[in-house]
Amino acid sequence: MARITREEVERIADLARLTLSAEEAQALTHDLDTMLEYVQALDGLDTQNVEPTAHPLPVATALRPDRARPSLAPEEAVGNAPEREGSAFTVPKVIEGVES
């Protein structure tokens, strides 16, 4: 039985902001199915009462004094933007029905 359907792959792709071609969707459905089958091996592992590990070594929340420090100048910070106006990033309009 398939572990994942093409419809699910397309739904996930939408969540991940990826547009898949028909061929990609088909190939990825197969790949994801194979991978999900492989990781099902973990089902056989008894993890009752096992704490999950989010981080390999114990880390405490690092705190520092709340002081202003030098940082990138606004011009530098936006210097890599594909499109910008002054020190702002520009994007296609977000609000429907408003003339830009």
Partner: peptide, 11 residues
């Protein structure tokens, strides 16, 4: 999947 993997990581 994810939580299970984190538990396996502990083991």
């Amino acid at each position: 999947y994810y939580r299970k993997a984190q538990q396996a990581r502990t083991l």
